[in-house]
């Protein structure tokens, strides 16, 4: 039992600003979102009518919304699988005690500070058919010049790669921290037993690292669901022909371009349920670790 300061009211006073702002700007709007999702509300909420679950029924019977779901799923899987594989490989390289290790580490993680919109702007340029450099190499190496942002499937691939690239720094930071916290004796024992680097990685390092990997899996999924907005806005605006219309972009359009508040609120609730599910899974499996998203 650690000793404490004796005051009955001071701790509440210290907590008050945080608790009040949480209640007003986080809990209250979330609760209101649930309520609003059962209304048909348009034109700044001037016309609202209780409709029960109608908004949800409309969403799940709408081909557009289901398409948006599929797109988001492909986008998220791409961001997670490519992102985790590449950043783990790089973190393994950077985890050696060699000369210049700190400089290498810095050069590998700095894209952490870039925004999705900046990433979008740069990749928009890289993929530009005339000024960009990607198609120059594509043509020189394979003799092709793909229409990155006018072909739907390629556009989805392009935003996936851009979003994945932007998050590499974040992933490498966590993989490096995870690798440095591995018990050295076990790795040493494997080496003494004559296990090669490949066997050591798959049999020892990878299983021991699984809490970090799982934590990053969840964080990357949440990033793919929410973090992609600025990037999509700059690169494709959900197009061509809704090919990159991920859920968050669809929500933005319904709420702030078409002013379908009730329908948008129902989409918020669906996203909320997804975040809650992912967070609970992460809490139960890897213990309490907070995500560093800036909330």
């Amino acid at each position: 039992m650690r000793s404490k300061f004796p005051s009955k009211w001071l701790p509440y006073l210290l907590l008050l600003p945080t608790l009040a702002l949480c209640a007003i700007f986080l809990y209250y709007p979330v609760i209101q979102t649930f309520r609003l999702s059962t209304y048909r509300a348009i034109l700044m909420g001037l016309h609202r009518k209780y409709v029960g679950f109608e908004n949800y029924v409309r969403l799940f019977t709408s081909a557009d919304y289901l398409h948006s779901f599929t797109i988001t799923f492909i986008f998220a899987v791409g961001v997670v699988v490519l992102g985790l594989a590449i950043s783990l490989a790089i973190a393994l390289l950077a985890n050696h005690k060699i000369r210049g290790a700190r400089i290498y580490r810095l050069l590998l993680i700095w894209p952490y500070a870039l925004s999705p919109a900046v990433a979008g702007s740069i990749w928009l340029f890289l993929l530009n058919p005339t000024a960009g450099v990607v198609n120059y190499f594509m043509k020189a190496l394979f003799g092709i010049s793909p229409d990155w942002l006018t072909d739907g499937r390629l556009a989805l691939l392009a935003v996936t790669i851009a979003a994945m690239w932007k998050n590499l720094g974040y992933n490498i930071v966590f993989f490096l921290a995870g690798l440095q916290n591995l018990p050295g004796e076990i790795l040493e024992a494997a080496r003494v037993d004559g296990a090669g680097p490949w066997t050591t990685f798959w049999r020892v390092t990878f299983p021991l690292l699984s809490p970090t990997t799982f934590f990053l899996l969840i964080m990357n999924l949440i990033y793919a669901f929410f973090g992609g907005f600025g990037l999509i806005m700059v690169m494709t605006e959900g197009g061509p022909n809704k090919a990159t219309n991920i859920l968050i972009f669809n929500l933005y359009q319904d709420a702030f371009r078409f002013h379908k508040w009730g329908l948008a609120a129902a989409q918020s609730v669906i996203l909320f349920i997804m975040v809650v599910a992912l967070t609970l899974i992460q809490f139960r499996t890897t213990g309490r670790r907070v995500h560093y998203g800036g909330q």
Binding site: C22, F25, L26, Y27, Y28, P29, V30, Q32, T33, L36, I222, F226, F229, I248, L251, A255, W261, A264, A265, S268, V269, L271, F272, V275, V276, T279, V290, H291, G293, Q295
Partner: peptide, 13 residues
Amino acid sequence: TLMMPIPVRIVPL
């Protein structure tokens, strides 16, 4: 509140 990013409360906010 970690589970409440802006998009899940955007319209009422």
